[in-house]
């Protein structure tokens, strides 16, 4: 499955949907998408992983970097939705489940803001 990253702007939240795989060759695409949302002054972000089947450490770094930017000055947050159990294990190993708020689905994550 080719990697596709789409961002959708809602009233209070931006939803970034990932389908496919995030590795070192596709993580720059994720970084660019998140950076554009942040540059537009939008700091409430949900990343929907429902259709994402792989994420390496390159993806984790992109998410951490965006998290760092949106939380600056307490201006927002980046929350994760619909993470598969395999991806969740990698987050758990890296200690990232304590850092990100994770929701079962994007509706709950969007509603949490």
């Amino acid at each position: 499955m080719a990697t596709k990253i789409v961002s959708k702007e809602y009233k209070r939240v931006d939803l970034v949907e990932i389908s496919g795989r995030i590795d070192s060759s596709t993580a720059p695409q994720l970084e660019q998408t998140l950076n554009k949302v942040i540059k537009d002054g939008r700091f409430h972000i949900v990343v929907d992983m429902a259709d994402m089947d792989f994420m390496s450490s390159a993806g984790l770094r992109a998410l951490l970097s965006a998290l760092k930017q949106v939380r600056r000055f307490n201006r927002g947050d980046l929350r994760l939705a619909a993470m598969s159990s395999k991806v969740k294990k990698a987050f758990e190993l890296a200690g990232l489940l304590d850092v990100f708020q994770v929701f079962d689905n994007s509706v709950d994550a969007v509603g949490s803001f």
Partner: peptide, 25 residues
């Protein structure tokens, strides 16, 4: 060693996850 997530959030370079994953799994 396990990557220091807090340091990463405090503007330190974010690295070390890759090797950590290899040895962890």
């Amino acid at each position: 060693i396990a990557p220091d997530v807090q340091a990463a959030l405090d503007d330190q370079p974010t690295s070390g996850f890759g090797l950590f994953f290899i040895y962890s799994v």
